[in-house]
């Protein structure tokens, strides 16, 4: 196990990490879900988290914007620095953190409001009342999410009328509307058909120029297509991390190899 740790530490040094995780452990009550994770996430790159169900990749993702806080009995030790600030520091501002670190969920979760109100929800709760600025933000966010042309004529219609793929892009647009630096995606395409999935992947490709993206996926082809770095989690531990191409073609650890060649998971 010691070897593993050293190896991954060596492999994972990156220039200018936006997120820097040190010795992160997570407990749900008595049960430990993550063990001493050390991981740097580079700025304006796509990092994929892979591993079998229950390996802790989603738990890890939800630490990055402290969404684990709302789970009863969850307890976190270690350090997560985002832009050099410890987000679990007792004085840390969770609200500011979540503005900076947006999240897209596995199952698209549009609010039962109009398309416009969905996108404007974030800016509004942060105090933006100016209608002109709101309209501008809504248009810009939808355009960035590649949804503007499809919905520009029906902004006042309910977001629930959109198709599944559109709903997920709406949720991405909603996250973009508060100008995050980091975008967390928790299996964003797992509930979508192949065409919608391709749409989302194209979108991720475009967004990586402006955002640091962390995506959880159990679709290895997807990880290979969209990410530049990949981290492999297994049973709550980070087994291996490295450039996606290398990790997929030449994994240095047996478990990684077994997983990506489909021997388990």
């Amino acid at each position: 196990m010691n070897d593993t740790k050293q190896l991954s530490t060596k492999q994972q040094s990156v220039l200018e990490p936006q997120v820097s995780v040190k010795d992160l452990s997570v407990f749900y009550g008595e049960m430990q879900a993550l063990y001493d994770i050390i991981l740097d996430i580079p700025t304006k790159r796509v990092t994929a988290l892979i591993g079998p169900s229950g390996c802790g990749k989603s738990t890890f993702l939800r630490c990055l914007n402290r969404m684990n806080d709302i789970i009863e009995g969850a307890h976190v030790t270690g350090e997560i620095l985002i832009d050099g600030e410890d987000i679990y520091h007792p004085n840390a501002d969770v609200v500011a953190l979540r503005r900076k670190v947006g999240m897209v969920f596995q199952k698209s979760n549009p609010f039962p409001k109009s398309i416009f109100d969905n996108i404007a929800y974030g800016p509004r709760i942060h105090g933006q009342k100016n209608q002109g600025i709101l309209s501008e933000t809504v248009e810009r966010s939808l355009q960035r999410a590649g949804l503007w042309n499809e919905v520009k004529d029906r902004l006042q219609k309910s977001a629930l009328e959109l198709s599944g793929g559109q709903q997920q892009r709406l949720c991405i647009a909603r996250a973009l509307a508060v100008d995050p630096k980091v975008l967390l995606m928790d299996e964003p395409a797992s509930a979508l058909d192949p065409r919608s999935t391709a749409h989302i992947e194209d979108l991720i490709d475009k967004l990586r120029k402006d955002f640091t993206i962390v995506i959880v996926t159990h679709n290895m082809q997807q990880a290979a297509r969209v990410s530049s770095r990949t981290a492999f989690f297994y049973e709550g531990r980070l087994i291996e991390v490295g450039r996606t191409k290398e990790l997929f073609t030449n994994p240095s650890i047996k478990q990684t190899e077994d997983y990506i060649t489909g021997r388990f998971g």
Partner: peptide
């Protein structure tokens, strides 16, 4: 009221009370 309404709102940086007031109570 689905949990996802709460999570979606919290993830956008809303405080818990704002989330309840704007995205839970109305429904």
């Amino acid at each position: 009221v689905p949990r996802s309404y709460r999570e979606g709102s919290l993830a956008l940086g809303a405080t818990q009370w704002t989330t309840i007031r704007t995205n839970v109570l109305p429904y």
